[in-house]
């Protein structure tokens, strides 16, 4: 096949479909809706949600996961575009990390050392580490599908960004059920759960997002 023949093929191919940005927006919406519905029809919202919502620990847990979900999703929008640097958005992830460290330090200062272990262990650590990745399945699949239309410089990193965003969305959804509020709990079990999803995204992306 001569190059001019190939060009003829490209010209006859239909115009480019949806833009990458719109694909990611759809993936984000679909992922959030499916994860939220899955939580509601399985374990449900926390029964005493209204009464606990004023406490600083709950506000931190919900706010922290939401902030991470927003910043990681912003990175996903950027990472599939070859002409736009993703570095600034990646560095923004240090903000929730810093907040988490500050919260842990504050918690250790407030809690008597005798309560540290019970707060860290919580009531449902194993379920948390299991269920956040389950909730992340839909957003991860949707992000990876959308990013297949992208042209990431490093496919594994792009997959990991998708995993981080999906894990953070799942964590932000799970926070509405989770009865364990200590930052010690969040900094351990939430981080492990999100880490699992991030690693899975990186492994899948390495192959599936190559172009």
């Amino acid at each position: 096949m001569k190059t001019n023949d190939l060009i003829r093929l490209l010209e006859e191919d239909a115009p480019a479909g949806m833009s990458l940005g719109r694909r990611i927006t759809l993936a984000l919406l679909a992922g959030v809706v499916v994860a939220a519905l899955l939580l509601i029809v399985t374990v449900g919202l926390r029964h005493n949600l209204a009464s606990v919502f004023e406490t600083a620990r709950v506000i931190f847990k919900v706010g922290e996961t939401l902030l991470l979900a927003i910043l990681a999703s912003a990175l996903v929008y950027r990472i599939g575009k070859p002409d736009l640097p993703a570095r600034t958005r990646a560095l923004m992830l240090l903000v929730p990390l810093g907040l988490l460290v500050a919260a842990v330090v504050t918690e250790l200062a407030l809690l008597p050392p005798a309560d540290w272990v019970s707060s860290w262990r919580g009531q449902h650590a194993a379920f948390c580490v299991f269920f956040i990745p389950v909730l992340a399945l839909a957003p991860l699949a949707a992000f990876l599908a959308a990013l297949k239309a992208g042209a990431p410089e490093n496919p594994a990193l792009a997959g990991a960004a998708a995993g981080l965003a999906a894990g953070a969305i799942a964590a932000a959804v799970y926070a509405w059920h989770c009865p364990d509020d200590s930052p010690l709990f969040v900094a351990t079990w939430y981080v492990i759960a999100i880490g699992i999803v991030t690693a899975a995204g990186g492994l899948i992306g390495r192959r599936s997002l190559a172009w």
């Binding site: 190059t3 490209l10 949806m18 575009k81 002409d83 239309a149 042209a151 410089e153």
Partner: peptide, 30 residues
């Protein structure tokens, strides 16, 4: 031909509001 194919299949990642040079150069280089 391989580069042309990539430009074609990935043209949805170019934002028409932005200049085409940096986008094209990155795709071609990679």
């Amino acid at each position: 031909q391989e580069v042309l194919l990539a430009i074609h299949l990935k043209r949805g990642t170019w934002d028409p509001a932005r200049p085409i040079g940096p986008w094209l150069s990155t795709i071609v280089r990679n």
